[in-house]
Design a protein around this nucleic acid. Structure first.
Lengths: 356, 356
DNA sequence: CTGAAAGCGCTTACAG
DNA sequence: CTGAAAGCGCTTACAG
């Protein structure tokens, strides 16, 4: 009898069922692809839902099913991150979504406000049950968040290793390998005083990076000099500051390894102000290849990687640790260092003459 | 009698109520700050909740209240956006949150996957009732999303004007004003052939920008030449391309206005390759001041603004259009062009000699 | 294959 | 000031 009424705004499954003159249970089963539904009925239901724009209310589903079908990507937009996370997240996000969408999981980003403690923020989000699982970024050396999520039994994966919860699933850029490769390359060009930059914060990648550098030096029999480890913000400004500090050192290094791509821009600027030319007077190795660093002159030696594919990997790692999806990604390695490939440029393409 | 049990993982308001030996209704009222609760009781409840880490399940609340207390910021991470949205969103987000947090509203970002139609994506998010209200970005010249949200009675505000739904609430950078100011300045320096860049897409800001430019030219009695409107991606590469196209024009312009800050980097690079020096041979006016553009030499004439404050404004505009918050922001202007302030640099600081 | 009913975790009139 | 109960919109055993 409800037939023929003009499509009013859809209020819920009840209206849809009335419109079709069948029970809400059947509507639900049809919509959710349950097998025990007459194909004829299913078609009618799907057509009506489409026509009336019905989509199940998520709160209702979540409450009943205990699952939201939403994955959260937590972002700590600290002042420093805001300056340098340029598109990093949006690119990784693309990779994550390409996997999640296969399972009708939606990705949302959870930006932790500057003035809120990330741990408390996360706790709140978890308690509210807004998401089924989480991807964490900005992994700290010791990161309480992992232990909390483990205890709360919320599946998660981290962008970055940590000393905490040593068995937690993660994917991470191969900072270690980059530092290694950079040192090898510089040493081969005759350098022995090699500086390196690292973030000022407790973010773990800095430790991994410097540790790789230290071991590489050791391999070459070069003593590790803490004075050559420069703490700076990961930004153009930070690069400027690194150059500034290096210029002030008495036994000035002949090479520098930067941990963040845009630092090279500030670094170039500062040394050039001092009449020092990268690739001639000082060797520079950047980190990740960035579109804007491409415009540097001389071209920057750096490392190429696909952040999109890193996102894919991270998504699969997460799903493999979720009971509901584990069977689909059974053989996924739960901890994965993500490789970067050297892109040689002109910025370190000279041999250090011993007389210098 | 439930007293003294060791704190098991909190499962819901029922456990909390049992633990306290009072009814769930009272627990709820205490937690939500309702006035008709004994202060003693409220204290006990809050203490227990804190201790046991209880936070109300959002699905339960949403279902009952019909409101999620979540605001969504939709981001269309098109390939182009990913390249250039560097931190723009994260900065605006900070401003948005500073307002929303006053009302216990959480902001989440909804990144529309590359391969999904933004309109369909939004429709789905709306139907699922994941958020109470939305902030839209990447406003198109004609943007169906506005009409859909209006029809669905979902409160929203847009970052950017549009021709659609002319009365919709928005905040937008003053592209008009920037184009105007840039033209005035360049004309005052003797320029008459002034080029301008605009995005290749249908995003409305490009139209607003070019329209402001056209009117400014008109004011100065300079004919509008469509050949001087260069469509390019908003990125370093796009800037490179703009320079390339300008170099190829027969009656070469003496000045250019760029719509996106990072374009200047590519532009500089390309003209310098041709032996042309910005600020001497060609005048360049950039758009928004960016940390990385600060390292350009000669320094770029551009415009300064606070994206954080723009976020604050946008949040207030949104809240003023939400029935539940309207009374708190009664006098908020619902449509707001956001000013930018000229930062003079060296890139256009020369007078064009008529003989050139 | 379908319908009727229970129940997910909350909030909120309604009694008392 | 507190408790008992209804009901938000769904999904899913359970009957038939």
């Amino acid at each position: 009898m409800a037939h023929g009424g003009k499509p009013r705004p859809m209020k819920g499954i009840r209206q849809l069922a009335e419109h079709l003159d069948i029970s809400i249970g059947t509507v639900s089963r049809a919509l959710n692809g349950k097998p025990d539904v007459n194909e004829e009925t299913r078609k009618r239901v799907l057509a009506a839902a489409e026509q009336l724009g019905y989509v199940a209310n998520q709160s209702g589903r979540s409450l009943r099913q205990g699952t939201t079908n939403v994955i959260g990507l937590m972002i700590q937009s600290s002042r420093e991150t805001v300056e340098n996370s340029d598109n990093f997240f949006l690119t990784v996000t693309g990779g994550l979504q390409s996997v999640f969408s296969r399972h009708n999981l939606d990705l949302i980003m959870l930006p932790c406000p500057h003035d809120e403690d990330p741990y408390e923020y996360l706790k709140r989000m978890v308690a509210r049950r807004i998401v089924d699982a989480l991807i964490l970024s900005e992994t700290q050396r010791v990161d309480k968040r992992f232990d909390m999520l483990a205890k709360a039994k919320i599946p998660f994966a981290a962008l970055g290793r940590s000393l905490s919860g040593v068995q937690h699933p993660w994917a991470d850029l191969d900072f270690d390998g980059v530092a290694n490769c950079a040192v090898d390359r510089l040493v081969a060009h005759g350098h022995r005083r090699i500086a390196i930059s690292t973030p000022a914060s407790d973010i773990n990648l800095g430790f991994v990076f410097v540790e790789g550098y230290r071991r590489a030096l050791e391999r070459h029999g070069i003593p590790y000099d803490p004075a050559l480890v420069i703490r700076a913000k990961s930004s153009e400004q930070g690069g400027y500051q690194v150059a500034d500090e290096l210029l002030g050192l008495k036994d000035r290094p002949t090479a520098v390894i930067l941990i963040y791509e845009l630092m090279a821009i500030g670094f170039y600027r500062r040394v050039m102000e001092a009449g020092i030319i990268p690739g001639r007077d000082v060797a520079v190795v950047g980190f990740r290849e960035a579109p804007r660093a491409k415009f540097l002159q001389p071209t920057l030696t750096c490392f190429r990687t696909s952040l999109h594919d890193l996102g894919v990997e991270l998504a699969e790692i997460l799903l493999s640790s979720m009971p509901a999806y584990n069977h689909i990604y059974p053989n996924t390695k739960r901890q994965r260092t993500w490789p970067l490939e050297l892109v040689p440029g002109e910025s370190d393409a000279f041999h250090l003459t011993t007389g210098k």
